[in-house]
Design a protein around this nucleic acid. Structure first.
Length: 484
RNA sequence: GAGCCAUUAGCUCAGCAGGUAGAGCACCGGACUUUUAAUCCGGGUGUCCCGCGUUCGAAUCGCGGAUGGCUCACCA
């Protein structure tokens, strides 16, 4: 039946309600129980009176007695209605209800002959009339486009989806309380930036009308958080959105949620420890174990995770030793292996290319890759024994990079030099290279304590803990093009 | 941004040697006072994603477009 006809029928029922003096859009209702509470505590609650509310999910009418399923946030419970309890008029009203209507019920808790815990309806009130049909009660909603665009339908009809987002909430809660307990201070820094820094990514541009100036949506909070280290906040973190004007994929949404953590007088090694403890803590709190199943993989998140220097990893997986060579030699090795790199690619970029191609696809169990080349790590402290490399690490699980951390560069002169290199790249067309942030240099010139910093991609962490293959399945309203 | 695939009733899906569209659920009417994917009887149905073309005839074939999915590229 076409949608407009289905809607007409419901509109007619709505009009009928008004005619009978019923308000189809009800008000405050005090519930005594949730569906799940009734089911879990049936032994104590049997034969008592309850007040519940929720959405009607299905009907089974039997003439003078009928059944319906009512769903609230906790789950579903069966309603039982009989004409000799409700009276003819009210019973008729009940039978005219539609799947999707939201009602409040007063009734008696009992168990049916078939053993189903139910509520015998003694009275009910309209909370909201539904004017549109719900998706199929048995098959649910499968059309992914509708699931994302009209997420509320997905949530009504597919209970496991609701569970994923409840888990997401618990992940963020666990993460936040873990950091707070360790004495970190939660802060908020600007999303509207004059300079988009702290990561290599293309930013979104927006415009401030009154000031008549373009602003960037932040790509990372890093440079603000480090200004706070200068200011004397020695342990800070921020949970929030970052915006990157780049491709959309199963692992990338234009806006995504991250946590960044900074700790004065710590270093990369401390942050690795913090990372593995934090992730293990979250897993324990949220799924009850550090063992999680992701697709075909049984993943153990229990610390400690192995540490593997990037050069070692490339030697191990690609069989190529890139240590102690210059840019030209590196490019030649890449060419020999059939890897495509830019004609002016630096040593660090070549190393990264080797890593991405040969190593990354193999990193299933959690591991820290360490010692990233300086050219691709403009904010990280150099290694004492090898200035080509930095004290930087990235945690990997199921082949995904789930974070990034390092010993923070606190030398303003080196930082300025690194920014200049980035600006050169920018001027030669690399839109992802850093912009010059003189104000940040000024901050460093006042003295920033040595510190460890860490960023974790929360969406990917949630994907891991909910066995979700697409980032869109862990973001309530993922980015979509407007419908044609 | 490129390649491949998908789009048919409110939902889930059939139909595709080209002959003008079907099922289940939902919906409407009827029977039924403990059912649970309730059952039984009866009923209605659509811009077959959009446009252009080929053809006597297009849901079906061709071209262009839209949206989505997957893979690749950039990245977290």
């Amino acid at each position: 039946m076409p949608l407009d006809e289905l809607m007409k029928i419901r509109r007619a029922k709505l009009d009928e309600m008004y005619k009978q003096g019923i308000n189809p859009y009800g008000e405050r209702f005090e519930r005594t129980h949730l569906a799940r509470e009734i089911i879990e505590n049936f032994d104590q609650l049997a034969e008592t009176e309850t007040r519940i509310a929720g959405r009607i999910m299905s009907f089974r009418t039997h003439g003078k007695a009928s059944f319906a399923d009512l769903a609230d946030l906790s789950g579903r419970i069966q309603l039982y209605v009989r004409v000799d309890q409700l009276g003819e008029a009210k019973y008729e009203q009940f039978c005219k209800l539609d799947i999707g209507d939201i009602i409040a019920v007063r009734g008696r808790i009992f168990r049916t002959r078939r053993g189903e815990i139910s509520v015998e309806v003694h009275d009910f009130l309209m909370m909201a009339k539904s004017l549109r049909p719900l998706p199929d009660k048995w098959h649910g909603l499968k059309d992914v486009e509708i699931r994302y665009r009209q997420r509320y339908l997905d949530l009504i009809v597919n209970p496991d989806v609701r569970e994923v987002f409840a888990t997401r909430s618990r992940v963020i809660h666990a993460l936040r309380s873990f950091l707070l307990e360790q004495g970190f201070l939660e802060v908020e820094t600007p999303m509207l930036n004059v300079i988009a820094g702290g990561a290599t990514a293309r930013p979104f541009v927006t415009h401030h009308n009154v000031l008549d100036m373009d602003l960037y949506l932040r790509i990372a909070p890093e440079l603000y958080l480090k200004r706070l280290l200068v200011g004397g906040f020695e342990k800070v973190f921020e949970i929030g959105k970052n915006f990157r004007n780049e491709g959309v994929s199963t692992k990338h949404n234009p806006e995504f949620t991250g946590v960044e953590v900074y700790q004065a007088y710590a270093d990369a090694a401390d942050m690795m420890k913090l990372t593995e403890e934090l992730v293990a803590h979250v897993a324990r709190e949220v799924v009850g174990s550090t063992d999680v199943q992701f697709g075909d993989y049984a993943i153990s998140l229990a610390p400690p995770w192995p540490r593997l220097p990037m050069l070692e990893a490339v030697k191990q997986y690609a069989g190529v030793d890139l240590s102690g060579i210059d840019d030209a030699q590196a490019r030649k090795l890449a060419k020999d292996q059939g890897l495509e790199v830019a004609p002016d690619a630096s040593y660090g970029q070549v190393l990264e290319e080797f890593f991405d191609t040969y190593v990354e696809p193999n990193l299933i169990q959690p591991i820290f890759i360490t010692d990233y080349p300086v050219e691709i790590s403009p904010l990280a402290k150099r290694k004492k024994d090898n200035p080509q490399l930095t004290e930087r690490f990235e945690p990997f699980v199921v082949t995904w990079e789930i974070g990034n951390g390092f010993s923070e560069l606190n030398d303003p002169i080196d930082q300025l030099e690194r920014f200049r290199k980035q600006v050169e790249k920018r001027e030669s067309g690399d839109e992802e290279a850093h912009m010059m942030d003189e104000d940040f240099i000024t901050a460093l010139e006042h003295g920033m304590p040595p510190a460890g910093g860490l960023g974790i991609g929360i969406d990917r962490l949630v994907m891991l803990l909910t066995n979700s293959r697409s980032i869109r399945d862990v973001i309530l309203f993922p980015h979509m093009r407007p419908r044609g």
